[in-house]
């Protein structure tokens, strides 16, 4: 974890996890979203719109899982690709702006069924905040 913000996959016997970090919780969540988009091969060809979503949860970590599941849903139900994801924490969860567009041609990735609450951690880390989340594939 030498960069100020970033993400990397976590090994799991059947599935896959993402460790994401940044100067604050919002940055770590944005990095987790970027990690998910990479795993599913979900970058967009070009940005054509922005989806604004509000996600409530028992805490910010659960709302972060909600955001990842929103991306999984938009990809599966609407066939969207993604650009940048910007996150702003709120007292009851978070709000996010998700850049969307047609998925990049020929991009291939894992079929992620969902982001899970298994082993979910959002805590202070070396660079400010760290999020660990596992995905069911």
């Amino acid at each position: 974890m030498d960069a100020e913000r970033g993400h990397r996959p976590i090994e799991h016997t059947a599935d896959v996890g993402i460790a994401a970090w940044g100067p604050d919780a919002a940055a770590a969540i944005e990095e987790a979203a970027a990690g998910l988009v990479e795993l599913v091969g979900g970058c967009c060809e070009r940005v054509e719109g922005v989806r604004r979503v509000e996600l409530a949860g028992r805490d910010l970590a659960a709302a972060a899982v909600g955001l990842l599941n929103e991306l999984v849903y938009l990809r599966d139900a609407e066939g969207l690709g993604f650009g940048r994801v910007r996150v702003r924490p709120r007292p009851d969860g978070l709000e996010a702006e998700v850049e969307t567009g047609p998925p990049r041609a020929g991009a291939a990735g894992l079929e992620v069924k969902a982001a899970t609450l298994h082993g979910l951690v959002l805590e202070p880390g070396e660079h400010g905040a760290e999020l660990r989340v596992f995905l069911d594939v």
Partner: peptide
């Protein structure tokens, strides 16, 4: 997949009021 996602999230939100403590939120 979405049915499970919906209901895990709902039960996680309910957890404090139900008073059920679990070692893993999943």
């Amino acid at each position: 997949h979405q049915v499970c996602t919906d209901h895990v999230a709902a039960m996680d939100r309910l957890a404090p009021s139900l008073g059920i403590r679990v070692p893993d939120r999943q």
